[in-house]
Nucleic acid binder design. Structure first.
Length: 428
RNA sequence: GUGGCUGUAGCUCAAUUGGUUAGAGCACCGGUCUGUGGCACCGGGGGUUGCGGGUUCAAUCCCCGUCAGCCACCCCA
């Protein structure tokens, strides 16, 4: 076996490159449809940029090294800190709200698994400077429209939405202490993937007040039902206020035409510590793959990183899981047509004539190939068929000396004789 | 980083429960069909059986290590 790429890194052969280009085109088209403009930043950043946001423990999961100028640097594991820096630097000059997107290649030093490599491309879409839930709805609609753009339906993919503030209100009203919230978040985040008894044990361990635990456990069944949450906590103004905000969000999503993709699910927490409000994840409905996309509101990050107080929200959608899903559903488009014309000569001494014809066709913006050495006509046609060209321009010695060529259509074998000039004239 | 499963040509798989020059199909390259392709036929390249060690008269097959892949944990981009 030859040694392949480094673990978790990919070689993109033409076939995979076509898939990657297709996906990126959909990403760009959909983002543009919503008025987002593309930006990019450096793939290498100061290590401090990530420490500032996530603390020192994140360093173990990054590609880091000391450069020749003695700087601690890291390959970017995510785009948001870079975005925050860039926006903060020009905060006053930018028209608000900022609607930017990017498709960075990101790196993470972790053991690879299906759907999770050490390198991937990720669509990042962010809105900065807008607190309205309309912005949250707009953001999720972009992610869902990408699903539509690649041919997936609301039966294939579900968007699960929640809000940190609603969850916090429910927990606090139930009697969970402020400093216990983080531990409870962890247990709730996993409740969809673990037996209920495990979740209950974790809650008991995380919460000091037994009454609070009992109340919470009895509420878990209602986590997917916003109305049930509302009626269960009807005596809590804090919860009701958040329930009403969630209803507004869901109304906006329906207005944007993506309501049928969305499920309310209070157990969506998202791991990142910086999310402050609405959060969402996109999953394939069969549960076969990892999350396709995750995002939400992170109103405090700009001030943490850039020293500018601006509300912000965004999502990341990686190419790995989505590509796996599209491959399994056979949704990648068939390879596009490659070369249009193949120039072949009946006479093996005519290679220079072949090149001349190819050159003039290329000057007309046509893609043209030919055998790079003199070969039998049989051989040339075989190569033309292998290359998948539509037409072969055949040069026969006597004919060509009078300015004539024969154009053969490979699909039906039909041949037409014409002057080369008329062929050129027919091409705009 | 921890644990489990797996590892034979580019791909999919064989190889009498250790037995001697590791095979086939597809793919690729070339040839014939006496200069018009996709068919058919013929031929060719390509494996130190992931790598290293051990047991044995003998290892693709058994044991250990290592690397890689897959899965779970961790963690989430």
């Amino acid at each position: 076996m030859s040694q392949g790429a480094l673990p978790g890194f990919r070689d993109f052969y033409p076939e995979q490159m076509a898939e990657r280009n297709y996906l990126m085109k959909v990403w760009r088209d959909v983002a543009a449809r919503y008025g987002f403009v593309e930006y990019d930043g450096p793939p290498l950043e100061p290590l401090d940029l990530y420490k500032k946001k996530s603390g020192d423990e994140i360093v173990g999961q990054l590609y880091t090294f000391t450069d020749k100028g003695d700087r601690e640097v890291a390959l970017r594991p995510e785009m948001t800190p870079t975005l925050a820096r860039m926006v903060a630097a020009k905060a006053n000059a930018l028209r608000k709200p900022v609607r930017w997107f990017s498709i960075p290649q990101l790196f993470r030093y972790e053991r690879q698994q299906k759907g999770r490599l050490r390198e991937h491309f990720q669509l990042n879409v962010d809105i900065v400077g807008e607190i309205s839930a309309a912005a949250d709805a707009e953001l999720l609609a972009v992610a869902i429209d990408v699903m539509r753009g690649v041919g997936l339906t609301a039966a294939d993919v579900r968007a699960r939405v929640s809000d940190r503030r609603l969850l916090a209100a429910v927990l606090l009203v139930s009697g969970v202490a402020e400093d216990e919230l983080a531990g409870v978040y962890g247990a709730i985040d996993k409740m969809g993937r673990e037996p209920r008894t495990v979740t209950e044990d974790k809650l008991r361990a995380a919460i000091g007040n037994p009454d609070a635990t009992a109340k919470l456990v009895s509420t878990l069944d209602s986590f997917g039902d916003l109305d049930a949450i509302g009626s269960r906590f009807a005596d809590s103004p804090d919860v009701l206020d958040q329930v009403e905000r969630m209803r507004e969000y869901l109304r906006f999503l329906a207005a944007l035409g993506v309501g049928e993709w969305v499920d309310f699910d209070l157990s969506i927490v998202r791991g990142l510590a910086y999310y402050t409000g609405k959060v969402f994840e996109l999953f394939d409905a069969s549960g076969e793959f990892r999350a396709i996309c995750g995002g939400g509101r992170y109103d405090d990050l700009l001030s943490t990183i850039g020293g500018v107080d601006m509300p912000a929200l965004g999502f990341g959608m990686g190419d790995v899981v989505l590509s796996e899903l599209l491959r399994s559903r056979r949704l990648f488009p068939p390879p596009g047509r490659g070369t249009e014309y193949w120039v072949a000569a009946e006479d093996e001494t005519m290679l220079a004539d072949v090149m001349s014809v190819a050159g003039r066709l290329r000057a007309k913006n046509r893609s043209v190939e030919y055998a790079l050495r003199s070969q039998s006509l049989s051989r040339q046609l075989k190569q033309a068929a292998g290359a998948g060209v539509e037409s072969v321009v055949m040069l026969k010695r006597d004919d060509y000396s009078r300015g004539n060529v024969t154009v053969k259509t490979l699909s039906d074998g039909a041949e037409r004789s014409m002057t080369f000039q008329s062929l050129l004239d027919s091409l705009r």
